[in-house]
Simulated assay, not measured.
Amino acid sequence: MIAAGFGIYAIAIPALLLVLLAGAEIVWPRRKLVLGRSPRWRTHALFFATNAVVGRLLSFLVVVGVAAHWASTHHFGVLNLVPLPFWVGAIIAFILLDLAVWSQHFAMHRYSFLWRMHAVHHADRDLDVTTALRFHPFELIMSTFFKSAIVALLGVPLLVALAFELWLNANALFNHSNIRSPRKLDRMLRPFLVTPDMHLVHHSTLVDDQKHNFGFGLTVWDRLFGTYRTESILGAENQKIGLAEIDDSRPSGFIWSIKQPIT
């Protein structure tokens, strides 16, 4: 019942945020787009649709919600073994899940077989809110099993696991958006949350920039592990987006993008 009821919010809130951020990008753009919105948006919509189907198929095996329910039913996982108030356990779970996502992202850049999947995301030569939808199905599958395993091992409560997924998706939409936010607001948020300007660095064509700012939600991990960078070494206004070896319109095509991990 919890998962079914929460599902409405898990769809409605990101959808509303996507529309709002897309509108804000038009009014207050951070950067001029190289390839424009079309056919990029069409390609990213196809990624979303494909991943929705893959996610549905995965639900017959395992998803984060199923892992959380299983852990609770079997009293499995660290948080189920330690008597803590619900709110304390929820905060700990959020922090550790965010660390797990940071670690997964770091691994995606470190190991070549994982990078082949993740490079599809980085191939986008522009960065806007729809780039948050541009993840290869292979990466979705790997990520789902990884997060489900972490949720089970930690014994994260179902409601907390679902809330984290919603929070993570909302953050991804926000920090991929092409919005020119006031510098004062950016400075206020950065000690805690990943901002669009901060994540922009990570999508640089420079490999050295790509090895920084792995966070999607909290900024503490990049600061703690020495991977935080304020802006590109070329400067925010001069950095290019995408992969250095791809300087044409191929990333805006769905077929080309979907084939990349196996070509």
Rank of each mutant, 00 (worst) to 15 (best):
P191N: 07
F254E: 03
N238L: 12
F145Q: 11
H121W: 00
A49T: 12
L140C: 02
W115L: 01
H109N: 01
I11D: 02
T219K: 12
E139R: 00
L168S: 03
L158D: 04
L18K: 04
D128Y: 06
L20H: 02
D128R: 04
L17R: 03
L114H: 01
L99V: 06
G235T: 08
Q104E: 08
M142W: 12
G7N: 13
G226I: 13
L33G: 03
K211E: 09
K32D: 09
W41Q: 06
T263N: 10
W102D: 10
F225S: 12
G77Q: 05
K147R: 15
S59A: 15
L97I: 13
E165V: 13
H105P: 00
A49L: 15
P191Y: 10
A22Q: 02
N178Q: 05
H118E: 00
L97S: 08
H44Y: 06
F6N: 02
R229V: 06
V66Q: 14
L185K: 07
A68L: 09
E245H: 14
L16S: 07
K211L: 11
E231Y: 05
L17A: 08
D186F: 04
L96P: 03
P85S: 14
G242L: 13
V54A: 15
N80H: 13
R56H: 15
F6W: 11
P29N: 03
W102P: 10
F86I: 12
H122D: 01
S148D: 15
G226N: 09
S177R: 03
F135G: 00
R30K: 02
P191D: 09
H75D: 10
A49E: 12
G5K: 05
L18A: 11
D126M: 11
V88A: 15
A71L: 09
P251T: 06
H136C: 03
Q260D: 03
S112Q: 11
A24H: 05
H69K: 14
W70N: 12
L173P: 04
S112T: 08
Y111E: 08
V151W: 03
H74A: 15
R110M: 11
V27C: 10
L114M: 09
S204Q: 05
A244K: 09
N169T: 15
V160D: 08
L99R: 05
D186R: 06
R229D: 05
I179A: 02
V19K: 05
R250T: 10
G77P: 02
A100G: 08
H105D: 01
W70G: 10
G5V: 13
L58E: 12
T130Q: 00
L193E: 07
I233S: 15
A45K: 04
K240Y: 10
A67F: 15
H69R: 14
T219C: 10
L166W: 08
A12I: 08
G155K: 05
V160R: 03
G23T: 12
R134Y: 02
N171F: 13
A67Q: 11
A12K: 02
H176R: 05
A22M: 07
T195E: 14
R56P: 07
R190S: 14
S148I: 15
H199I: 02
R180M: 07
K240I: 05
P14I: 08
I246K: 01
P191H: 08
V220E: 11
I262W: 13
P261R: 08
W115F: 01
I95E: 01
T73R: 12
P157Q: 11
G36Q: 07
A52F: 14
D126T: 06
L18Q: 06
N80K: 06
